[in-house]
Computed example of a mutant assay.
Amino acid sequence: MYTIKQLRRKKNISQTELGEQIGVSLRTIQLYERKDANIPIKNLTKIAEFFGLTIAELYMREVNDMGEAYTKRQPFTKHNSVFYPLDQGKHLVMAPLVLVEHQEKYIQNVKEDKISNPFQAGFVIDFLADNPHRIFEVSGDSMNDGKIDAIPNGTFVLGLEIKKESFVRSNETSWNLPYVIVTANRVICKCLTGYNKKKKTLTCHNLNTSPEYQDFELPLEEVLQVFKLVKKQI
């Protein structure tokens, strides 16, 4: 993010000093200061806090520098996410973030129909949707095949919630796509390849072809939430 370089220079500190403050190497800071940098959410939070900003404010500075100027229209809240209008119909969405270590608590809140998530992260999206957005930290390498569409361990993904019942009558366009699935005891990221009407199960597929990662059937009744992946940040 180019704005990190600007903030660092304004504060009159070196890349090495900034790295020491957030616990990363000089080389990592050099990469973070590139405009196309993919910065892990945890480190982005540390950087924002160091400069006395929120993640949203950090993003707003960056999108202005990238030519995706903030339109000055008022941000709005929907489904516990905050949307900041940008030019050309784009929006910065600050959505609830579910870290791996908080998945158990998130599942419990879903079961109890509670809304409690103190963490947020941001993505720039090209279109608005009526359904809720959530950001999940992916655990494990079952979706990592080393290719461009891989979703390796530690990836942050932006998901758009869809009704699980839609898979019962869905067409081919719904299949062979990655989803985050919240069940009664875990949060998983898988490609869904079909629905077995007789068994009432979803077929979950792993991108990683290693023998330890086998496809499996997931009973629809065990599914609490389903999120279609919109974007990812490795």
Rank of each mutant, 00 (worst) to 15 (best):
F51Q: 08
A69L: 11
E217G: 02
P211W: 04
K111E: 06
P219M: 10
F216Y: 15
G140P: 09
L158Q: 05
S139E: 13
G19Q: 09
S174P: 01
E212R: 11
I148H: 13
K197M: 12
K147W: 03
Y59M: 14
S25M: 09
Q103T: 12
M94C: 15
L7I: 02
I151V: 15
V124E: 05
K147C: 04
E62R: 00
E161V: 01
K46Q: 13
I22V: 15
S142N: 05
L192T: 03
I151G: 05
Q233H: 12
K105A: 13
Y32N: 02
D87I: 11
P178A: 08
E222F: 03
V93N: 06
K46A: 08
S116K: 08
N171D: 15
D145P: 05
K42F: 04
Q120G: 05
S139H: 12
A69G: 02
F156W: 05
K199Y: 06
I47N: 04
I22E: 02
E165N: 14
D126H: 13
D113T: 09
F119A: 10
R27Q: 15
L177W: 01
I39D: 00
V157M: 07
K147Y: 07
P75H: 10
E33H: 04
M143F: 04
K114S: 03
K5H: 11
T28C: 01
P178R: 11
K197W: 00
R134E: 02
S25A: 11
V226M: 13
H133S: 04
Q88P: 01
K232E: 02
T3Q: 07
G23Y: 03
I29S: 03
E112H: 09
I41F: 10
K111C: 06
T193A: 14
G122S: 11
F216I: 06
T28H: 11
E33C: 02
I125V: 15
K114F: 05
E57N: 12
R169L: 07
K164S: 08
R61I: 00
Q108W: 04
T209I: 05
R186Y: 00
V124W: 04
S174T: 03
T45V: 05
L224Q: 11
V82C: 06
A37T: 06
L44Q: 13
R34S: 09
M1A: 03
I135D: 03
K231I: 04
R73D: 15
Y213H: 13
L202H: 07
S139Q: 14
P40V: 02
V24Y: 06
V82M: 11
K228Q: 14
F216D: 05
N117G: 01
H133N: 12
G154P: 06
G194S: 07
L224V: 07
H102A: 09
L44R: 05
C191P: 00
D126W: 03
F76I: 06
I151M: 07
D126G: 10
Y213A: 00
E212N: 12
V230D: 08
P96K: 09
E217N: 12
P211T: 10
L86R: 02
K228R: 15
L58G: 03
F119N: 10
I13D: 01
L218E: 12
E212M: 10
T183D: 09
K198C: 01
R9F: 10
L229K: 10
K197S: 14
V223R: 06
H79G: 01
